[in-house]
Amino acid sequence: MGYLGGFLVSLRQIGRKQRVTTQYPQEKAPKPVRVHGRHVLNRYEDGMEKCIGCELCAGVCPARCIYVRGADNPPDDPVSPGERYGFIYEINYLRCIHCDLCVEACPTEAITESKMFEFSFTNRADAIYTKAELVVGDDGMPQKLPWEDWRPGEDEMTSAWMRATAPSGDARFEGVVGWSGELGYGVRAPEAGQDGKDAVATPPAMLDDHGHGDHDEHGHDEHGHGGH
């Protein structure tokens, strides 16, 4: 009758309040703030796209999953505030490894990653996201496609200020707005709470040499197209 002792282990757990299982389709486990998920293509406050078609994200991608082709902006109806814009922007999610190198390479903070990674495909063509699916909507939020499992809170904080190598991650840039205004968010407040151990090592004159400190008092220029 010694084998009944094994059943006692299971029987003792019945009725206990302690549960470790996350009932996934009903609830999700909490995610870290800077988790890497599906990309979004951000827009400025006036609705213009941030992507300038420079293909730096495609060049830095180790999995070669991004395909960008830039084109000149039409003068009467420009898509992005600069000279060129991302004419074609495609990400193959059967190649993307969510390393966030494209986010760090982007000079205009156009591409960032949301916190949603619960999605799957039934054929290969569905996995290639085009610009129509990646660009944020008119409210600045990512588009919620029917095969993706969005929950409240996962579409927030997807803009550029949260990336790991943003200037806000350095104590020298404490309180410095280093990013541009964003559709649906405006100009975000800078992050605070750095430890300040690097702040002493750099004289303030270096900030002007590197060009990071040349922000004006508004945080962005008169068109709202600031940034680096």
Binding site: Y24, P25, K28, A29, A63, Y93, L94, C96, I97, H98, C99, F117, E118, F119, S120, F121, T122, N123, R124, A127, W147, D149
Partner: peptide, 24 residues
Amino acid sequence: DVYAPGCPPTPETLMHSILTLHHQ
């Protein structure tokens, strides 16, 4: 039948693909 993206896919992504397979 179902492709699960990610490198690696999280358990939620795998369970989402399993649910997609259930639907199929």
